[in-house]
Amino acid sequence: MHIVRIGYATLKGARHVEQPCVRLAENGPVGDRVFCLADPDEGRVLRTVEHPRLVLVETGWDGTVLTTATPEGGVVTAAPRPTGEQLAFEYWGRQARVELQDSPHAEQLGDHLGRPVRLARVSRPGEVVYAGPVSLASTGEIAALGESDPARFRATFVIDSERLPGPGTELAIGQAVIRVRSTLPRCRVIDINTATGTMDTRHLGTLAARPRPIGELPFGMDADVLVPGTVRTGDPVSATGR
């Protein structure tokens, strides 16, 4: 097995950008979901499934300056400044702690989505991650759905394999070691066309028709980081045997 794709999104829900490499820290990929969009009036973090045009937003982040680009042609490059407002917003039934930012990105992204939004920085990695800090998908799983675009599944790592190792398996992946945790529940985000921002498949319906645990629509696995390290596209993936 080896890594065929690495990806993440600096802004929660934005385009899942393919990366040549990533640094895995104990709490997940460095640079992943550093920011999110929020609605302070409703006290909620915006969800991609409710705002599918988010996937059309391209982002870049160097640790200080955030760049966002929308299909309308606008590009905003600026360093977000914290306002000092630290809030707890609802995210899939739990509280996510974020700090509101003062930056021109909010106006640009609000115009793109057709609604007022605020840019917020996540207080700590994982606050707006639904499951484990690392997500995995296999080329075999993706092909079985008849899909050619792995970005739909927003996995940290796509592994060249017919199936993924089961829960509890420890994997050496580049310089890092991860432990597979459990199957990854899915929502209609996997049905969003990453080029148009529209729902155009029934992958979720296909998963619903398969034998599965009651109340879950699993696809892929999530994992925890045991040993931090850098992972590059093409790196081998193997069970540690520990």
Rank of each mutant, 00 (worst) to 15 (best):
M1A: 15
M1D: 13
H2C: 05
H2P: 06
I3H: 11
I3S: 11
R5A: 14
Y8C: 10
A9L: 12
L11Y: 11
L11M: 11
G13V: 08
R15T: 10
R15I: 04
H16D: 03
Q19G: 05
P20K: 11
C21R: 15
N27K: 04
G28F: 02
R33G: 01
F35A: 00
F35Q: 03
C36Q: 06
D39Y: 04
D39M: 05
D41G: 09
V49G: 07
E50W: 10
H51A: 13
V57M: 12
W61N: 03
D62S: 07
T64Q: 15
V65Q: 11
T70D: 08
P71M: 07
P71T: 02
V75T: 13
T77M: 11
P82W: 04
E85C: 00
L87D: 01
Y91H: 15
G93C: 12
R94D: 00
R97V: 06
V98S: 07
Q101N: 09
Q108I: 01
G110K: 03
G110Q: 09
D111V: 12
L113S: 10
L113V: 02
P116Y: 04
V117T: 07
L119I: 09
V122Q: 04
V122R: 00
V122A: 06
S123F: 09
P125Y: 01
E127R: 09
E127Y: 01
Y130K: 15
Y130S: 15
G132S: 14
P133W: 05
V134L: 10
V134M: 08
A137W: 01
G140Y: 14
G140V: 01
E147T: 13
R152C: 04
R154F: 14
T156Q: 05
T156E: 09
L171F: 07
L171W: 03
A172R: 15
V177Q: 03
V177S: 07
I178T: 02
R179K: 14
V180Q: 03
V180C: 07
T183S: 14
R188M: 01
T194H: 07
T196M: 07
T196V: 05
G197H: 09
R202P: 02
H203Y: 15
G205R: 06
G205D: 11
A209P: 03
P211D: 03
P213G: 08
G215W: 05
L217T: 04
P218Q: 00
G220W: 08
M221T: 05
D222Q: 03
V225C: 04
V225A: 05
L226V: 08
T230W: 10
R232L: 08
R232Q: 14
G234A: 10
D235N: 11
P236L: 12
A239D: 10
A239Y: 00
G241D: 06
R242C: 08
R242N: 13
